[in-house]
C-alpha cells in the first residue's frame, strides 16, 4: 500500500530527511530515534497523545529546538548550529503556531511584509503586493490595516498563515493550528489549510483534526512517548491500524 505513496514523488530527493534524531530536555528523553523522510508536495499529519513529541519533532525542523543526535537535512542543507544555515532553512520553512504569535504592535499588512522586506530584501511596494496576494488567498484582504488585537482568533490564524506564505516557503509546518480556536472558527482555518494543500505545498501538520487528516493527508504519522509508532495512508491508518497503541488512541479520539 505504501508503494503508491512512494510512487507519487519517487523522482525527487526528499525535501526533509530526519535520520536517527534524538532529543533530550535535561534528563528527559523526548525524541527517540526519529526517522522520517518527506518528499516534495507531500502532506503529512502527525498525531498522538500530548507529550508524545510531535510538536518537538516539527520544531526541530526549523531549529526552534536543537536536536542532540542524528541528522536533519532540509532541501539538501544539513541543520547544524551554524547561524547562516539556520537562517537559510528558516526562510524556506514557514511555521504556524498554536497561539498565532502575530506581532501585536504591527498591522496585519506589516506583519506580512516584515520578513520579506528584512530577510528577502524586497522593496516595500513589492512586499505589500505579495502580502495582499496572500491575504486575499486567506480571504481577509479587507483587514490589512487593522491590528491583530482587533481580529478574531480564526482571522488571526489566517493572517499567521498568510504571513508565513509571504516568505514563499517550500515547506509549511503547522503546530496545532486549530487547538486555541473557538469551535466555530476551526473550519475557516481548516479550509485555508485544505486549499493550501491542494496547491501542492509540502505540509507537516500536528493536529487532532482527523477529518482534515482523512481528506488531505498523504500520510498519517502516529507518535507516542517520543517515537514514531505507526505511519500509513489515512485510509489504512483509520480503518485498519496495525498497532495496539494506535488503536487505543483512535478509539479515544474518535469515541
Amino acid at each position: 500500500m505504501s508503494d503508491s505513496v512512494a510512487q507519487a514523488g519517487q523522482a525527487s530527493e526528499p525535501v526533509i530527511r530526519m535520520q536517527g534524531v534524538h532529543k533530550w530536555f535535561g534528563q528527559f528523553h523526548v525524541l527517540k530515534d526519529i526517522n522520517l523522510s518527506v518528499r516534495q508536495g507531500e502532506r503529512i499529519v502527525l498525531c498522538g497523545p500530548s507529550g508524545s513529541g510531535k510538536s518537538t519533532t516539527i520544531r526541530c525542523l526549523n531549529r526552534l529546538e536543537e536536536h542532540q543526535q542524528g541528522r536533519i537535512v532540509i532541501n539538501g542543507v544539513e541543520l547544524t548550529s551554524d547561524l547562516k544555515q539556520i537562517e537559510a532553512i528558516r526562510s524556506e520553512v514557514g511555521m504556524v503556531f498554536q497561539h498565532f504569535n502575530l506581532f501585536p504592535h504591527l498591522t496585519v499588512l506589516q506583519n506580512c511584509t516584515l520578513a520579506p522586506m528584512w530577510v528577502r530584501k524586497l522593496p516595500r511596494r513589492q512586499a505589500e503586493e505579495v502580502a495582499m496576494h496572500y491575504l486575499e488567498r486567506v480571504r481577509i484582504p479587507e483587514q490589512a490595516n487593522k491590528f491583530p488585537g482587533q481580529l478574531s482568533g480564526g482571522q488571526q490564524q489566517r493572517v499567521a498563515i498568510a504571513r508565513a506564505l509571504c516568505m514563499k516557503p517550500k515547506i509549511m509546518l503547522f503546530d496545532e493550528p486549530t487547538s486555541a480556536l473557538d469551535p466555530e472558527m476551526v473550519k475557516e482555518v481548516l479550509d485555508t489549510m485544505v486549499s493550501l494543500a491542494e496547491s501542492g505545498m509540502t505540509m507537516l501538520c500536528v493536529t487532532h483534526e482527523m477529518g482534515f487528516a482523512r481528506t488531505v493527508a498523504d500520510r498519517v504519522i502516529f507518535m507516542d512517548k517520543g517515537e514514531i509508532v505507526e505511519q500509513a495512508e489515512p485510509e489504512v491508518f483509520f480503518t485498519n491500524p496495525v498497532n495496539d497503541r494506535t488503536k487505543l488512541f483512535l478509539s479515544q479520539i474518535l469515541h
Binding site: H22, W24, G26, Q27, H29, K32, D33, Q68, Q69, D224, K225, E227, V229, E230, V242, N243, D244, R245, K247
Partner: peptide
C-alpha cells in the same frame, strides 16, 4: 495486530549533562 514495544529511555549524551 502488533504490540508496540517502546525503546528504553537513554541518558542524554555526556556533552549536554554533568
Amino acid at each position: 495486530m502488533t504490540i508496540h514495544t517502546f525503546k528504553p529511555d537513554l541518558p542524554p549524551p555526556t556533552i549536554s549533562i554533568g
